[in-house]
């Protein structure tokens, strides 16, 4: 098991600065998730931790030791890829055992490690098959198994679930959470699915254009976002951003989550007309066009019906809103 520490890590491809000074401490046994929009540098950062990409400047430490120049296989890490990346010419058993075999581990020991991992993921029936003879879900389980066999200090996952269908994704997510508990291993997990991030993470790192926007526990990010980017990125449907001046508040923007806007047919602070209603059974999302603030979303629990173009009035719940300045940074009260 091991802790990870990044200090002022930067990466440039030619003249493009993809990662711009990331500082991060991940404690031993922690489950840390990187989220951010596509192209913000999540995979690049993960690949630098793995040693697949050189660090332009800054320092990567695993378990206290500087590993900037250590090759990937010597960093005692294991990585699970989005595309599974199983060796097509090897059976599941050999796929899982290869890393140990390469490291010169005794045959019996490799067999034992493969056996334990396959029992953990119920892969026993598949051990003699080749990757081409497995379904997508089975391949991803084998890829996870291959990572477990090595007993790495650090598990790295790069969007491991995004090629799976919704049901399998939920199932594998639960499986990964269980593995994290059982192995009490340090895991770094990249995703752009915020449900995965919120449900799995001890701590989330939100990245925006190569910089850390905020680091914190899932509920910390949800209840106490540091800037408009994090506020808008975490939570679904997205937070509403209103013009603070129109509501008599200081700052530039007032953010309020859809569930903290009350809707009324009679009276309220912001008038608008219903432009679309999504009824999901457990909840109802109402999209309201307003003159002053553009399109706003209201999330109601249970079933509700509103007619198209109906006039409604919205009121932010007191004490539930966040204020941000012109640059997007939070103004704390």
């Amino acid at each position: 098991m091991g802790a990870l520490s990044l200090s002022n890590v930067c990466k440039s491809f030619g003249t493009v600065d993809v990662i711009q000074g990331v500082d991060l401490e991940v404690a031993d046994g922690e489950f840390c998730v990187f989220v951010g929009p596509s192209g913000c540098g999540k995979s690049t950062l993960l690949r630098m931790i793995a040693g697949l990409e050189d660090v332009t400047s800054g320092e990567v430490r695993i378990d206290g030791a500087r590993v900037n120049l250590t090759p990937p296989s010597k960093r005692e890490i294991a990585m699970v890829f989005q595309s599974y990346a199983l060796y097509p010419h090897l059976t599941v058993r050999d796929n899982m055992g290869l890393a140990l075999k390469q490291a010169g581990t005794a045959k019996a020991e490799v067999a034992g490690a493969v056996q334990r991992a396959s029992a953990m993921l119920s892969l026993d029936a598949l051990l003699e098959r080749r990757p081409a003879e497995l379904s997508g879900g089975q391949r991803q389980r084998v890829a996870i198994g291959r990572a477990i066999v090595r007993r790495p200090k650090l598990f790295l996952f790069d969007e491991p679930l995004s090629n799976l269908d919704a049901a399998l994704r939920v199932q594998t997510r639960i499986e990964i959470a269980r593995l994290h508990r059982e192995l009490s291993a340090t895991m770094i997990y990249v995703t752009h699915d915020q449900v995965e991030a919120m449900t799995l993470a001890d701590r989330i790192v939100v990245l925006n254009a190569g910089k850390v926007a905020q680091i914190g526990a899932p509920m910390e990010l949800y209840n106490d976002p540091a800037n408009t980017f994090v506020a808008g990125f975490i939570g679904s449907p997205q937070m509403n951003f209103l013009r603070a001046a129109d509501l008599g508040e200081p700052g530039e923007t007032l953010g309020i989550r859809p569930e903290h806007l009350t809707i009324s047919r009679e009276s309220g602070r912001i008038a608008g007309s219903v432009s679309h209603v999504e009824r999901l059974g457990g909840e109802t999302n109402v999209y309201v066009t307003t003159d002053a603030h553009g399109l706003l979303t209201v999330r109601l629990f249970g079933e509700h019906s509103f007619a198209f173009a109906e006039t409604v009035h919205l009121t932010p719940e007191p004490g539930r809103s966040f204020l941000f300045d012109r640059a997007g940074a939070r103004i704390r009260r």
Binding site: R47, L52, S73, A85, L86, Y87, L98, A103, R146
Partner: peptide, 8 residues
Amino acid sequence: NAGRIDGL
């Protein structure tokens, strides 16, 4: 990359 991590 998987090969590199596995020490090939």
